[in-house]
């Protein structure tokens, strides 16, 4: 038997601890870190000039713009929806509540491709509502509105899911107290409810943003891949890759990866600050 340190919090042998740590680390390196590194290595393979040149191209700029636009629309939509849904589910009793809760999780379990296909079914020229919009000159499928809809659907649970457990735990006493003190619903929301969930809301929005920028499957189905028009960054990466333009493909991919890393970093920083705040509050 291996000697045990007297300070060890568990009685598990050291070899078990180190095996587990090694397995976990190796897994993370192989599955996550190496591919991520490869993206940046490939992007810079032909030097910085080629890397930056990849962005200085109309189709690439258009893809970046479109991705930012889609994110800028779908994230606020899902933020408002997430808050509304979390509020409704945690502060009220109503028929169909558990159904709504389940429904919110649906986009997480359904393949994004199916989400895209559903929109095609509904809004394409031959779809259920397509003709109605087509008559009025509104294009949805193979156009920006379709991409926004698909992205919104796929990223729809993230804000609500961060909020619901926290708001459930907090209950409704503080809101009731605000009402007895003469505060109206808006005042209560902005001064009591919102500050109580600000961190969960921030995390939800960050996660939702990261996911919205990177969405491929659903957007791929509805976009039509029109270069320079309906191509988002993930789609543009695919186009470039299929054209054997590896440096440009990885350059765009590295920008996407960078967005994701920044989002994660912001979250990590906020989380550590949040913990510090909590710890400070706990000190008597």
């Amino acid at each position: 038997m291996t000697a045990r340190s007297p300070a060890a919090p568990t009685r598990d042998p050291a070899w078990l601890k180190w095996t587990l740590i090694t397995v976990a680390l190796a897994y993370v390196v192989v599955v996550l870190a190496l591919p991520l590194l490869a993206v940046f290595v490939e992007a810079l393979r032909k030097g910085e000039a080629a890397f930056f040149a990849s962005f200085n191209e109309p189709a690439a700029l258009s893809a970046i713009q479109l991705t930012l636009l889609v994110t800028a629309i779908s994230v606020p939509l899902n933020t408002v929806f997430g808050l509304t849904a979390a509020w409704a589910i945690t502060k009220f009793e109503f028929v169909g509540k558990s159904f709504l809760t389940t429904l919110i999780d649906l986009p997480l379990s359904v393949s994004p491709v199916i989400a895209g296909l559903v929109y095609v079914l509904l809004y394409s020229v031959h779809g259920w509502f397509g003709p109605f919009f087509a008559e009025r000159g509104i294009e949805i499928i193979f156009a920006v509105p379709g991409i926004v809809l698909a992205t919104t659907l796929v990223t729809f649970p993230y804000v609500a899911r961060e909020l619901i457990p926290l708001m459930q735990q907090q209950g409704t006493d503080e809101e009731a107290a605000a009402a007895t003190l003469g505060a109206g619903p808006w005042r209560t929301f902005f001064l009591v409810t919102l500050p109580n969930v600000k961190w969960a809301l921030t995390f939800g929005v960050l996660l939702c943003t990261a996911r919205a920028m990177g969405e491929f499957g659903a957007v791929s189905v509805v976009s039509g891949h029109i270069r320079g028009q309906t191509s988002t960054m993930p789609l543009h990466v695919e186009i470039l890759y299929n054209e054997y333009n590896f440096v440009a493909a990885f350059a765009i991919a590295s920008l996407l990866a960078l967005f994701a890393l920044v989002t994660l970093a912001v979250r990590a920083v906020l989380e550590s600050r949040f913990e510090a705040e909590l710890a400070a509050a706990d000190r008597t």
Binding site: D173, E174, A176, A177, A179, T180, L181, G182, A183, G184
Partner: peptide
């Protein structure tokens, strides 16, 4: 509720 002007102290203070 907000118009009643009735002070309420909650069991868990709220």
């Amino acid at each position: 509720v907000r118009d009643r002007r009735i002070g309420l102290v909650f069991q868990h203070y709220a």
